[in-house]
Write a protein that binds this DNA or RNA. Structure first.
Lengths: 223, 223, 223, 223
DNA sequence: AATGAATGAGTATTCATTCAT
DNA sequence: TATGAATGAATACTCATTCAT
């Protein structure tokens, strides 16, 4: 048996974790990167940190992603993909009043996106938009526009069914969404520092926001 | 005109170098730094860039600010100082219905802060909160808390005067403010990239938001 | 032979770059740093120079030592470690007259420390003591005090055996050591500049010093 | 009265110290520089510090000395000049035994040079010799050589008068001087850091050294 | 595929020196 | 003369990226 084989044999038995799940690597790296990018921002996250958190070496990271920038883009794309198209299907089967529908939509959005780690990428996008305009556009097209459309359809339903006043859709949509976005930004910026004394309970906040919105949208009761 | 004259003419108008303006320098540097930090973020802004934009050399920057970090903090403090306590006085003399008062407050906030360059520091704070928790707390104490109090007083006035329903103040306050914050974030992140086709007119957006809020807050008309 | 071949031939022999020698690196860097620090002083030695002399790049230096200051400290510790406790053991078995013992001690000290490159760190410590008081204390504790003790024991032996007069140990110790320290300082400062015409031969100088010391210490012959 | 005169008149009454002793400036700067160079070394001393300690502005320093290097050289030259030629005259009239003469010489040297601030430049020279070889040579020629000659003449006197043994002058001279140099180095390096517990009283040390030297030099008493 | 030692371009910061006032 | 604001060359240190193993 040649010496070279012997040398290669040593790490083989000492590293049982390395052999399995080669195709899992990119996912583990993306997850580690998501954590760190969200926590520290793009520039303050070092490539090696990501690698270490994913349990691999620095070199391996660059085996899967050609650069830190591409890693960042992949993190964003990966996590945006999850968000898109969820929730739309669910609403199709909703039969109750549109006010309840809108409230439900907001609550679901928080439960399925806002409350998850993935919401950190919304914060990332907004923080790094000027340095990664391409990503900002991607986010706009893949998340903002579809989300906008979803809300538009709900509002239109309320108007069509005579429940809501005939409001300006464009600005009402944003008035509906803005507090949700705010909640995500808050969670990933000031909340961790200034939590004590000014805590915002997301569910209660959304409930209050939804109540105000629906009341503001509903046609006034006829006497 | 000989070439030598042309060459000499260039530095003549472009180089009033080595001026003595100790008084003005800090302000010029802070302004240049605000522009760049808002535009590119903290990490992506190079100290020398700030100096050059302020029309001085690298060394001069460090003559006035001991480090990039202190420059950043100074930018934040400088611009927050302006914001704080503005607007509060104006409301004291307001005599009309609280719904109009609330609408007016929001519109003035935009006109005096949101629409100015200084609003970029709200975006900065939120983007860099995890890297500068000390600043985040400063912002929270100096801006968020006073702003919150201002809105609370207006809402309380509406309730006390029997105009508004007896809502949960804590969450209503944030429901009022969230779209304003959203507007600032939007302006400094996605708007510059994805402006075409999805423009938000701040005044109209605030008007719509205020209308919805006030309608949601007003007691229902008694038949 | 075409020019292109010649050009290619140069890097071929001059660049076995990117070798992997993690074990050897710290030692090579410490040696290079010792040379340069001794030759030029702490401040006048640039980190990159050290790296280049060790045959690596700037980055590699900081891979092994977190800062120039730590590199300096490591150089000092590394070279002091060798010195400490050497020589002490040898004297234990010495059986002759204490005068010879003292002479032997001084000669050995020169041969094993003074004459080597490592003696440069004594000069370093003394030159940089005010900038690195921590190191000065380290040197004092690890080198000066043990050395002092060694000499003390020898002198005490001479007194106990009735060979030496009952001198004040504290000051005699320093009188014994001072010319040795002087020799080291001389070698690393004026000697390289002003060698011609005023050369000091260390062995002869120590012999003369030892002779004078021993004569001064010995009890006067009884008639 | 023209405006320019008025302007000039203002500092004239506000700065009473500035007008007097223009010719004292270089001296004050040299003194401040001596203090700082001795205390912190050449590189660690900033030009502005020197100026501030001398009570002038940075610009003024460069008005009198074209560069930091020249300032350093001037400091050395200035203080060496004081040292040279002192003491020689005094010895000419000494009439007692050469042993006492030698002891006296050493004690005087300490009192007039070693104990003063100026002795710091010996430490400076030795510390910076490799970076300022020109200064090292200057020091060698102006201080070491004359000092050596002085000691040589005393030793020669002792031999000529039959008091001292016929020792090797070259090495004995250095054996006499080395502890004095050592004392100066000690005072300006380790003593400030490690004073506690290992203090060397210079007068006592010199006394002990002189006693040992003289005993070592004296011809053995004839029975 | 995986490693981690090595690289070097890039950046904040210092400080001797200049010069308009 | 004297000032001190301004300069910019110099330097320690970082970190994304490469590549021999």
């Amino acid at each position: 048996m040649p010496l070279s084989k012997l040398i290669n044999a040593i790490p083989a038995c000492a590293a049982p974790r390395r052999e399995r799940r080669k195709e899992a690597r990119p996912g583990e790296l993306l997850e580690a990167a998501l954590d760190l990018f969200v926590e520290k921002g793009y520039a303050a996250t070092r490539a090696e940190e990501v690698a270490v958190r994913a349990g691999v070496s620095k070199g391996t990271l660059f085996l899967y992603f050609p650069s830190k920038e591409e890693l960042f883009k992949a993190v964003v794309r990966e996590n945006l993909a999850r968000t898109v198209t969820e929730g739309a299907s669910e609403l199709a089967s909703f039969a109750g009043p549109t006010g309840e529908m809108l409230t439900h939509l907001m609550q679901q959005w928080w439960a399925r996106y806002g409350a998850t780690k993935a919401s950190g990428i919304s914060k990332l996008i907004i923080s790094e938009a000027s340095n990664f305009p391409e990503l900002a556009r991607f986010y706009h097209d893949e998340v903002v526009t579809p989300g906008t459309e979803l809300v538009r359809r709900v509002l239109q339903r309320g108007i069509d069914r005579g429940e809501f006043r005939d409001v300006d859709l464009h600005y009402t949509i944003h008035a509906v969404m803005a507090p949700l976005i705010f909640l995500v930004m808050w969670k990933h910026s000031l909340a961790p520092c200034c939590g004590a004394g000014n805590t915002i309970d997301p569910e209660k906040f959304i409930a209050q926001h939804a109540d105000l919105m629906v009341r503001g949208l509903l046609k006034e009761k006829q006497p």
